Amino acid sequence: GYSVLVLGKPIEYRNPGVVFAGDTTLRELIALIKLSRVFVGNDSGPLHISGAVGTPSVGIFGPTHPSLGYAPDSPNSRIIGAELPCRPCTLYGKGRCRLGSRLCMTLIEPDEVADAVEELAGFENTEPVEPNNASPRKPAVFLDRDGTIIADAHFLDDPAKIELLPGVAEAIKTLNDAKIPVVITTNQSGVARGYFDIETVETIHGRLREILAERGAKIDAIYFCPHHPEGEIAEYRRDCDCRKPKPGMAMKAASEFGLDLNSSFIVGDKKSDIEFARNIGARAILVRTGKGAQTERELRDIEPDAVFDSLPGAAKYIVEKWKKQ
């Protein structure tokens, strides 16, 4: 048989197993998931971690649904859920059940989960399960948006106000030419605060892509967090897993694009960008554009791996490191 490790938040468990719940740091949690033969979990951060590190996973979806875009998508993952007309009833699974029964969870049979685990763990087939797509995971460059790529307009709400910082398009093209995936990760709490909506953010990002494309540069993916724990809009008022410096956006990118976070780079102008890098095990680069110069002066308890005046210097440094590794 296999040992069972219980991970997550502090809680009492009646089932036997080695309980690490509430006793791990984020790095330790990632390490334990990476060392596991199979990970079983609900639609949550650890499930995306399993995808990021290549561990076969069984995802249990209750009130949420894979169609919302938060499910692992690889040959070594299995999704289990009860097909009900009321699903999905919530984006993040924290709403109250309209039926008062939680049928979407109670209809999931333990044997169905056990069968999926047996299939992935190789109980019946001793051939090892290959990581996602059986291809090597690759590093990426995660760029902050405001103050790193474009001028920090303080809650940008109009694509016409986009102001590309000097040398940014050329810097991103340098990364493109080196075949390094470029991903934007940005906190956009203006959605939660009611300053603008999701569609406005997406329109701004569409225009940003166009401006960069006109200069021969390409962004491979853009992830943004619309939440804030003190937001005015109830739908987005939450202490989420995706607001930097928490690792949610990077974990989702790693799962969807097969990225190696430990070999990746984070570039930004704020302390939260450095903390973001530390939380995913990546290298942190601070740029002095935006709030970067002030951030550099005020840093005390955490240091970046490198500091540059702007993105072009950071891009040159990253390409040199990329070639060496």
Rank of each mutant, 00 (worst) to 15 (best):
R14I: 14
L99N: 11
D111C: 04
V307H: 04
G206K: 02
K173R: 15
G147S: 03
A160Y: 04
L208M: 12
P56W: 05
N15L: 15
K270W: 01
F39R: 00
E275M: 05
V129D: 05
R27K: 15
Y70V: 04
D43G: 00
A293H: 06
E296Y: 13
E163Q: 14
K9Q: 09
V129E: 10
F276V: 06
L175S: 01
A178D: 00
G54W: 01
V38H: 09
D177E: 15
P16F: 08
G17K: 09
T174W: 01
T148Q: 02
E109V: 14
F265C: 07
H65P: 03
T174Q: 09
E202A: 03
K34P: 00
P63H: 03
L5D: 14
I318E: 08
D115T: 13
S189T: 15
F308H: 11
F61L: 13
P85A: 10
A293T: 14
K138Q: 11
P229I: 05
M249Q: 11
D309Q: 10
D115Y: 13
G1Y: 04
E298T: 13
A213R: 14
H205A: 10
E83A: 13
E232M: 12
E119Q: 10
C89P: 15
A31P: 07
D301W: 11
V267L: 02
R14K: 13
A151P: 03
L165W: 12
S74V: 06
V129C: 14
D111G: 03
G248F: 00
P139M: 03
I49A: 14
R297G: 02
R98Q: 13
F276S: 13
I49S: 10
A221N: 09
E83P: 12
V6N: 12
P304A: 07
L5C: 12
V4D: 06
A134K: 13
A217M: 11
A169C: 08
A254E: 07
S67Y: 09
G17M: 04
A293K: 15
E202H: 10
P136W: 08
T186G: 07
